[in-house]
Design a binder for these strands. Structure first.
Length: 522
DNA sequence: GACCCGGAAGGACA
DNA sequence: TTGTCCTTCCGGGT
């Protein structure tokens, strides 16, 4: 199944967002998502790729596809063939006006244009969305079906602003890479759904490298991410939602890039984007042709994985592995990381308090746990591959059900515990068990169970396999594990875990799980 | 005050 | 319409 861009979320354009000469440390995936000209150091006003893209539509076409005539539809299709390197369309299948084609579902389009339906759908929905936005954002203006640059700012809270005017006025120039821009538009609009399975690459400790991302990420610049982290407003404090405030804080407090490539992002001579081939662009519209599931950073854990697994380790000022093999990581810059996450999700008011709440939801599904004793230190409990293969968190419930023992329920071998002197049982965390679940159970053969029911390598469960064990008694109960807050909340499961002392160097924190090692490293 | 925890309500999205 | 995955807010604890 392909992941396709969803409804286009707000575009996080805000005052100041595009003027900070500070790069955000983003994984190549993120850069990939925003691959086009994000002028960090614009000598001229930032250009909006949204408008650039639309400017590449045939001049005869209105911005709103719903008002296209049949000929317009044909014109659009021809244009799409060229721009996106698509197979020639059977125009007989598109004998319809714009209203009709706009009503076609993705499936409909795919049936009419096998292999290209997603692209068409994406582009059409983009155009429709933007046309709608124009009506909403600029209510005083006509529907502006012929407006060439009707891109609004984020409806999150960005009514027309000076930036909006700026955007409207600065993108008349022809952009030779309309397809890229199109992809970028959608990437910008939905920062997570266009990417080509970054974590599929990044998983297994790998780096999120994409064939279509041949150009070094630092060749790209970001206007949407014109600022970076380092906000001092994290951690539960109510931060200003204003972009001005946001970017100011970013500018003042951002941790400096710690790698040459990160610094290179700041270089004013960096080209605005690296042109990519139509095939590369096409891949953006077929973001999930990877055989593996794809979360594209849409999920928090995946986002963190991407940052952590950046091949250049450019984000270690924000988040870094403390022990890659065990999945222990530390959030170096909580506020900054929260900002990155907020940008990723278009929630610019994100702070560490909120983000950490999301992280805590992962406790109950045993995706994550807190490393006791060290601030901002967490541990992934599940192999990214497994997480990706779990269609949604609810499936973790199945894995954790009594009839399908969770990986967390496996007893750790004594020798394994001994191998990890810093992994110690958490004190006073065991909840009183119900009799029904307190019967001692035999240690289960880890390998068979894990291999049958999950993708976690057998060895990988050792670290948390004693989480729910107490004196050889499995204390696992069928606790709610979904992220919803329904039902009783019993965190004893996630609380019964071992603690990992997240010392600065964690010299002894090597565990046999090797979640995050590449397969060929194992 | 920062961090951490988890309940509750609700939103965006598929 | 429903479930997922947060986001937001909050009170409380360390």
């Amino acid at each position: 199944m392909k992941l396709v861009p969803g409804p286009l979320p707000p575009i996080p354009t805000g005052a100041g967002m595009d003027r900070l000469p500070l790069p955000l440390p983003f994984s190549p995936d993120l850069l990939w998502r925003y691959p086009l000209s994000f002028p960090l150091h614009h000598q001229q006003p930032p250009s909006s790729p949204l408008m650039d893209y639309k400017s590449q539509l045939p001049s005869s076409l209105a911005s709103d596809p719903r008002i296209w005539s049949r000929d317009d539809v044909i014109s659009f299709l021809r244009w799409s063939e060229r721009e996106f390197d698509l197979q020639p369309f059977d125009m007989d299948m598109f004998q319809m006006n714009g209203k009709a084609i706009s009503l076609l579902t993705r499936t409909d389009l795919s049936e009419r244009a096998p292999g290209s339906g997603d692209v068409l759908h994406n582009v059409l929905q983009l155009l429709i969305r933007e046309a709608n936005n124009m009506q909403r954002v600029l209510p005083s203006s006509p529907v502006t079906p012929t407006s060439r640059h009707p891109y609004p700012l984020s409806p999150h809270s960005h009514p027309p602003t000076p930036n909006w005017s700026l955007l409207q006025n600065t993108n008349e120039a022809f952009h030779p890479h309309a397809a890229q821009i199109a992809a970028h538009i959608m990437a910008q609009s939905n920062s997570v759904t266009l990417s080509p399975a970054p974590s599929v690459d990044s998983q297994a400790g790998g780096s999120p490298q994409h064939a279509e991302n041949n150009a070094p990420p630092h060749l790209f610049t970001h206007s949407i991410f014109g600022g970076s982290s380092g906000g001092s407003n994290g951690s539960g404090s109510n931060q200003s939602d204003s972009d001005e405030d946001y970017s100011d804080k970013m500018g003042q407090n951002m941790s400096p890039p710690n790698t040459p490539s990160a610094y290179s992002l700041m270089h004013p001579n960096i080209p605005h984007f690296a042109p990519r081939s139509p095939k590369e662009v096409k891949r953006e519209f077929f973001p999930n042709e990877s055989p593996e599931p794809n979360t594209n950073g849409r999920l928090l854990w995946d986002f963190l994985q991407q940052l952590l697994n950046d091949p250049s380790q450019r984000y270690t000022n924000y988040i870094a592995w403390k022990n890659h093999e065990t999945g222990v990581f530390k959030i170096v810059d909580p506020a900054g990381l929260a900002k990155l996450w907020g940008i990723q999700k278009n929630h610019l008011s994100m702070n560490y308090d909120k983000m950490s709440r999301a992280l805590r939801y992962y406790y109950r599904v045993n995706i994550l746990r807190k490393v006791q004793g060290e601030r901002h230190c967490y541990q992934f409990l599940r192999n990214p591959t497994e997480l990706k293969n779990i269609k949604n968190i609810s499936l973790l419930r199945q894995q954790m059900s009594p009839t399908r023992p969770s990986p967390m329920t496996h007893q750790v071998a004594p020798q394994q515990q001994q191998q990890h002197p810093q992994v110690k049982p958490e004190p006073v965390q065991l909840k009183q068990e119900s009799p029904a679940h307190s019967e001692p159970i035999k240690p289960e053969p880890i390998e068979s169970e894990i291999n049958v029911h999950s993708n976690i390598p057998a060895h990988s469960v050792s670290v948390h396999s004693n989480m729910n064990m107490h004196n050889n008694t499995r204390v696992y109960e069928d606790k709610p594990t979904d992220l919803s807050m329904e039902g009783p909340t019993d965190l004893s499961i996630s609380s019964n875990h071992v603690n990992i002392v997240c010392s600065p160097d964690t010299p002894n924190l090597r565990e046999p799980m090797n979640y995050y090692m590449k397969d060929d490293e194992k």
